[in-house]
Simulated scan of single mutants.
Amino acid sequence: MIPVFHRRGLLAAIGLAPLAPQALHAQQDWPNRPVRIVIPSAAGGAADFIGRTLGRFFEGPLRQPVVIDNRPGAGGILGTETVKQAAADGYTLLVSTNSTHAANEFLYRRLPYDPVRDYAHVGLLGTYPTIAVVSAEAPFRTIPALIDHARANPGRVFFGYYSSSSQVPSALLKARTGIDVTGAAYRNITQIVPDLISGQIQFAFLDALSAAPALQSGRVVPIAVSATRRTVQNPELPTVAESIPGFVVEGWFGLTAPAGTPRPILDRLQALLRDAVQDDAVAAALVRQGLTPGFLTGEEMDRFLVADRARWREWVGIAGIQPE
């Protein structure tokens, strides 16, 4: 006679046995329908550019359409939660960012997702600085001149922000210099630029990719970058650190799937992402938009994020930002 606990184990094994070949076939057959890439921000921004660039590249080798799904709102939380709730089958991916998987942990009291447990990372594709920009009509063109103007006009200088990458540098500037400036929250970059041009706000830190169209128009002027060194795209543009030593804030973009996504699918996606970052045309497009390509595997990205969360914890703390 089979002991009860052995019978239960045997019954469980028998019940599960027919599913294993089905699951294996599903992985081997992937993808047999369109793949969705969720963008946790509005169309026209940096994450949107990244997602659409990857989507176009992926469609060839996958032989399936790649659908871009913009889900803006709450600092990237809405789109990120959407991917957490999706089936872990390789058909829903997320353009992950320093906001969604690092800074938000310290900017919000309660996240509806766990940035570590709820996701499996495909890989990181590059980093970017933020650019301090002002209206072409602004009376200042440098960080020191902006600081002097704010000191001469306490309480009358405003900055706009729409993500951690734009909020934290402005708050750090305020904390490090003691200037009396006020932040105004926006849903996305497309709302900030018109107010910047019209003078409703006086300055903003925009991620390099999102800032490109506004800068090309000539109605918005860059005055500094928050990178560790001057960029190859704008070598004449000083870093904020040249005026305020140690002032560095950089963001990143990655590709992420729901936790539990089968390893073979993650491996194939990882290989595709590496190919995309190393493709001359894709890399050139990313560089033109202000990104510094630098591929990391999913495992390397996990280790990178341990350090990155520590950086954002420090930056948010120094900036004095209270979690919402």
Rank of each mutant, 00 (worst) to 15 (best):
G76F: 01
K84L: 10
F5G: 04
N98K: 07
I131G: 00
R7V: 04
P18A: 06
A132I: 13
V282A: 07
G260Y: 08
R219H: 12
T130Y: 07
L125I: 02
P213R: 00
G298K: 02
I201K: 01
P21S: 15
H101D: 13
G73M: 08
G55S: 08
Q85F: 09
V306A: 14
Y162D: 12
P235H: 07
R7L: 13
T261F: 13
W30P: 09
R151A: 06
A211K: 03
V232H: 03
F57P: 02
A138I: 08
P18L: 12
I318P: 01
S41H: 03
E81V: 13
A212L: 15
P169A: 11
I50M: 00
L16D: 07
F247C: 02
G126N: 02
H25G: 14
A241E: 09
P61M: 08
V221Q: 03
L237S: 10
Y91E: 03
P65F: 05
P3L: 06
P194R: 07
A138V: 12
G90K: 03
S163M: 06
V122C: 05
I189P: 02
A284L: 14
G51Y: 00
V66N: 00
M301S: 04
P293N: 09
A259C: 06
P139L: 12
R274H: 15
Q289Y: 01
R274M: 06
S41F: 00
L305C: 08
E137N: 15
A43E: 07
S135F: 14
I39H: 01
R141I: 05
A185V: 08
V221G: 02
T190K: 08
A43D: 03
E300H: 09
E300F: 06
Q216E: 15
L237Q: 10
Q27E: 15
Q200N: 10
V157G: 00
E59P: 03
W312D: 01
P169K: 09
A319N: 05
R187Q: 14
H101S: 04
H6W: 09
V240K: 02
A307E: 12
T127A: 14
R56Y: 07
P323Y: 06
W312Q: 02
Q167E: 15
G44Q: 12
L255D: 00
A138G: 13
N104K: 09
F295D: 05
D308C: 04
N188G: 11
V249N: 15
Y113K: 13
I68Q: 00
P115H: 08
A23I: 15
A17F: 13
G317V: 05
S164P: 10
H121A: 11
I14K: 04
G60M: 07
L269M: 05
H101L: 11
R52K: 12
W315D: 02
S198P: 04
N70Q: 12
I201G: 01
A47L: 02
M1P: 12
S41Y: 01
Y113A: 10
G90W: 01
E242L: 05
T100K: 02
R156N: 09
I68C: 03
G246P: 09
P115E: 12
T82W: 10
P258A: 12
T182F: 06
G73T: 04
L269S: 10
